[in-house]
């Protein structure tokens, strides 16, 4: 159980979660095996390759891209990705263009499209990223090695409700002729958060 919570500053949380699990197990409400199975199933389904596939399809199929931007839950279901498996979240895909670069944050906690990207990186949950993403996103992007032209407006999506966001990066130059499978290998997790260009 504790391995799931091993990141900076979480020792206290681990202790509390373990205590809660012990209480629930004592009452016969959960078993260690059931928890392990749930986590296993969760991590098997929640992986960044889901996000990469979605982007590769959107780059190669304009009609799919249009459906994805219009109703992402329905569009990703076409690829066999079932978002309802975890929680009733509504997915919104936001598209990068020459004029707008999108970036995702959850300033209040750490909401993240786990189903499509797997567990979030530690920096995404850090107080620093959560504060600076909305106050000085251009400087944050520069630290990630992303330099945008002055005229590109940065739009930061703060995940404050049941909505989860995914960035659709711009298709890289020179990727013409690549099939979906090859395109998917170009996409990175950070590109889908907006802290990388692809």
């Amino acid at each position: 159980m504790s391995g799931v919570h091993d990141h900076h500053g979480s020792a206290e949380m681990t202790r509390r979660v373990d205590a809660l699990v012990a209480r629930l197990a004592h009452r016969g409400l959960v078993t260690d095996a059931a928890i392990a199975e749930t986590i296993e199933s969760f991590l098997t389904h929640a992986k960044p390759s889901n996000g990469f596939r979605i982007v590769a399809r959107a780059w190669s199929d304009d009609a799919f891209r249009a459906r994805l931007l219009d109703d992402a839950n329905a569009a990703v279901a076409e690829l066999g990705i079932d978002l309802s498996h975890w929680a009733p979240v509504t997915l919104r895909v936001v598209e990068n263009t020459a004029d707008v670069h999108n970036m995702i944050v959850c300033t209040l906690c750490s909401c993240y499209p786990i189903a499509l990207l797997g567990p979030s990186p530690a920096w995404y949950k850090s107080a620093e990223y959560r504060a600076r993403a909305v106050s000085e996103p251009r400087a944050v992007l520069a630290e990630f090695g992303v330099e945008l032209p002055e005229r590109t407006r940065i739009r930061v999506w703060d995940s404050t409700s049941e909505m989860r966001y995914l960035v659709l990066p711009r298709r890289p130059a020179g990727s013409d002729g690549l099939d979906e499978q090859r395109l998917a290998t170009l996409v990175t997790r950070n590109g889908l958060i907006g802290t990388a260009l692809v």
Binding site: V134, S135, P137, R138, R153, I154, R155, V156, W157, D158, S159, T160, S161, E162, M163
Partner: peptide, 19 residues
């Protein structure tokens, strides 16, 4: 109703979903 509200914060925009 929850609304996506866009705020201009100087050189960038922030969109938040607000009740």
């Amino acid at each position: 109703m929850v609304y996506a509200v866009q705020f201009s914060l100087g050189d960038h925009d922030v969109v938040a979903d607000l009740w």
